[in-house]
Simulated assay, not measured.
Amino acid sequence: MERRSFLRTTVVGTSAVALGGSLWAGTAHAVPAQPGPGPYGPIGSADAQGIRLPAGFRSRVVARTGRRVAGTSYTWHPAPDGGACYADGGGWIYVSNSEVSPDGGAGAIRFSSSGDITGAHRILSGTRTNCAGGSTPWRTWLSCEEVDRGYVYETDPWGVKAAVRRDAMGRFKHEAAAADPVREVIYLTEDVTDGCFYRFTPTTWGDLSAGRLEVLRMGSGTSGAVTWAAVPDPSGAATATRNQVSGAKRFNGGEGCHYADDTCWFTTKGDNRVWRYDAAAQRLDLTYDDSLVTGGAAPLTGVDNVTGSSSGDLYVAEDGGSMDICVITPDAVVTPFLRIEGQSASEITGPAFSPDGTRLYFSSQRGTSGSSSGGVTYEVTGPFRR
C-alpha cells in the first residue's frame, strides 16, 4: 500500500477524559495526553541502522524483504506489517503480516532464549493485503485483510496447522484485532473514513467459527457511555457491515488495537487519535488527540499500530509523521521513544514485545526505497520498564 494521506476536516473541543483501570490506575486528566519528558530521556543520534534511540538502547536488523532470514531458507516477505510475539519454550516467535496483493499472507521468525534466530517460515499464503491483526489467548494469530469485504484468517504461528478463514467475524476492510479474555470477545477495527469499531463474541470461547458480530453505538461526542448492537448480516453481501445499524459510531480510519486490564486502546489515523474503551464500564474516551496538544507541536502524528508493555506504557507507531514510535505513559505523557531516519516514504508497523518484555520488534514497511520490496524488520533491546 502506498503512503496514506488524510486531511483533518474538523478540530474538536476539549472533553473530559478519565483514564481508569488497573493499567492506568489513579489517573484522571481534563484533556488527553500531552507532550512531556519521557521515561527514557531524549532520543540520541542515529545508530548504524539509522535509528535514533534513548541512551541504553540498541537496535539490529533481523530481516529484509527479498532476502533470506539469517541462517534459514525463508525469504522475508514484502511490506511487513502487523505483528505479535509468542512464547516458544525458552524462546519466542515473531509473526509478521505482508501487506501486498495478491498473496500477502504472513511469515514468522523463531528466536532462542538468547535472542538468536533459529528459524523462519510461512504461516499464511493466498490472501490479500494483510495489514494488522491480533493474537488470541489460545496462541493463534488473526491476520486481517485490509480490502473491501476482506476476511480474518486464523493462523498458527508455528506454521504446523493450516490457516482457517473466519467468516463469522465479518467481511469488511479489516485492520486490527484484540482479544478480551474476561468478556470473551474480540475487538476489531475498520480502516475506512466512516468505519466502525466492532466486537465479535464467539459462540464458544476459543472457537471462532461461529458467533455474534456487533458495532459500537454512541452519540456524536468523544467521551461517554456506549452500547452495542448486532450486525444483521456480517457477510455484508447487500449492505456494508458499517451501514447496517442505525446510530453506529463512526471512526475516521481505524488502525491498531491493543487490550490489557479491562481496556481496549485503538487508533484512528484520519484524525490522529488514540481511543480508550473501558470494557468494564462500557465507556469510550480519548487518550490522545493531536489537535488537543497545547504548548507546542504534536509529537505523535500519523497514528497507526499500537502495543503495550507490562508497565502500562503504550507504544504507538507512525505511518508518516517523523517516523517515530511514541510512548504514552500511564500518567498521560506522550513523547518519541525512537525515530527512523532517512525513510520518510515508509511507515512503522508491527510493534510487539518479546514475552519477557526486553525486546521490541517492528518493521519499516518500505524502508529507504519507498516500495514494498524495501521492507526492514528490526529488534530494539534495552532497559524497558516492566
Rank of each mutant, 00 (worst) to 15 (best):
S354F: 02
A240H: 05
G170K: 02
G296K: 01
D191P: 08
W24R: 13
I328P: 06
E175I: 12
G320H: 06
S310L: 14
R110A: 14
S344L: 11
G350I: 07
R217D: 01
I123E: 01
T335Y: 03
P202Y: 07
L23M: 15
G236T: 00
G133E: 06
G41H: 01
Y94M: 04
S235A: 05
G256Y: 07
R250F: 13
W158S: 15
T129P: 12
L284A: 06
S98C: 13
D262G: 00
V185M: 03
V226H: 09
A48C: 04
F6S: 13
T263D: 04
E190S: 08
A168Q: 02
L124E: 12
D148Y: 06
S113E: 10
G382D: 03
A248V: 05
V160Q: 14
R199W: 05
T227H: 04
I43W: 01
G20A: 14
S209C: 02
V226D: 09
T358F: 00
W138F: 10
T381Y: 07
T307H: 12
T189P: 13
W138N: 01
A229R: 08
F197M: 15
T329D: 05
G38M: 02
G107E: 09
P78I: 06
S364N: 12
S372I: 13
A120N: 08
S98M: 12
T358A: 07
L216M: 15
C85P: 03
G71Y: 10
A16R: 15
V164F: 08
I340P: 01
P54G: 00
F172Y: 01
V182C: 00
D304R: 04
A297K: 01
V62T: 03
G126Q: 00
D47Y: 05
C144I: 12
S73R: 08
V327C: 04
R199Y: 02
G26R: 11
A238F: 09
S209R: 03
G370L: 00
E190L: 09
G342Q: 14
C326S: 08
T287H: 12
G105T: 13
P383R: 02
A230Q: 11
A210F: 06
G302W: 10
I340T: 11
S311E: 07
G370C: 01
L338T: 04
V333H: 08
K249N: 11
R165F: 08
C144D: 11
V164I: 10
S59C: 06
G342D: 14
L292C: 03
I93N: 11
Y378D: 01
